[in-house]
Write a protein that binds this DNA or RNA. Structure first.
Length: 122
DNA sequence: GTGTTGACGTTCC
DNA sequence: CGGAACGCCAACA
């Protein structure tokens, strides 16, 4: 029996599907990766990704607040991520947030409506 | 094998 | 809207 692909591979695959100019949240990816409620695992998975080679567009992954999250240990790569997103046409709010209502990636399903209603963005 | 930490999320105040 | 607490799972010491 083949060893099942690790959940991480699933996460990377989904992240790669994020189109240019759009962003996705950890919770959203987690849900698509069959890891609902395990957003932390997604974050850890992206942490393992080689951000220097951009093998995975980790740049398009943000938290539920629509803000770029990363650890101070990442040495200010937050600035890099923001630059990449801006280069894709994403506009940051004065507070440094992204308008998820507009840039949130919608998988090829009708779940988009459910998502908006589920998250109930303020 | 146990304890702590972590690119998060949600709920409560 | 901001801060605090709990949850959830995997990797690391």
């Amino acid at each position: 029996m083949t060893k099942e692909a690790t959940s991480y591979d699933r996460i990377y695959e989904i992240v790669r599907q994020i189109p240019r100019g759009y962003v996705a949240t950890y919770g959203q990816i987690a849900e698509l990766a069959n890891l609902a409620r395990k957003a932390r695992v997604v974050g850890y998975a992206l942490y393992r990704v080689d951000m220097q080679s951009l093998d995975v567009p980790w740049q398009r992954v943000v938290n539920a607040k629509g803000e770029i999250s990363l650890s101070p240990l990442r040495f200010g790569t937050d600035y890099l991520q923001r630059s990449l997103l801006e280069a894709e046409g994403i506009i940051f709010s004065p507070t440094g947030k992204i308008d998820l209502r507009k840039y949130l990636w919608k998988p090829d399903l009708g779940w988009a409506v459910t998502s908006a209603d589920h998250h109930n963005i303020k």
